[in-house]
Design a protein around this nucleic acid. Structure first.
Lengths: 97, 97
DNA sequence: TTAACATATGAATAGTTGCTCATATGTTAA
DNA sequence: TTAACATATGAGCAACTATTCATATGTTAA
């Protein structure tokens, strides 16, 4: 039984896709694929509260899908891994059918 | 704001990745990528109840990621879309780093 | 038809999760 | 230092979801 052999990998894989499996998070990732953004700008673009976005960014950062740096009063977030773009692109291919 | 333009696509995309974002479902998909299987065989391989697997298969079928056919007393499930394989493969690439 | 096997399904439950609200932390300009 | 701005975070709640249990549906062989 192959999935038993890959037990841990498949668990991690589910955790990875879970990150893309929420409307808010995938919107955040999608925006960050186009340009790096501060938390308040993300919140404004997605029409959500700063708190909600900040909570999701924390989860995305823990999963190492986004990274951040301070710039004055703001924290600028950006995509941490090129795989984010390719995973979203591949998913889009599937949707558009 | 780009994500607003793609509002519906991103919602569907999240729904797609949600399917891959559960340990049980991704194990099922992974097994089915290797060979088509009856429900009871899947349940045995994953060491889970027939009911639990059946419930998840229903969800996967609604999402059009798996298909099924009857063969005697059994229902044989298989992957419905080649994208399933490529999405899992791409995710695996990300994990193995 | 009946028994045995295979699958599907509805209800109930326990666990998870995303958001809100309030507030803390950190930065900058006056 | 103080006020204004930007972000992070913990607690609480409401909504969602994966599993279990019991049972219904469907198929085959005797």
């Amino acid at each position: 039984m192959s999935s038993e052999k890959y037990e841990n990998e498949l668990y991690d894989l589910a955790e990875l896709f879970k990150m893309f499996g929420d409307s808010t998070r995938i919107k955040v990732l999608f925006e960050l694929c186009e340009s790096e953004l501060a938390v308040c700008d993300l919140a404004e673009r997605l029409n959500m509260t700063q708190s909600a976005i900040s909570h999701q960014l924390k989860i995305l950062k823990q999963s190492k899908l986004v990274k951040s740096r301070r710039e004055g009063k703001s924290i600028i977030y950006s995509v941490a891994d090129e795989h984010v773009r390719s995973i979203i692109a591949l998913g889009m291919e599937h949707i558009e059918e």
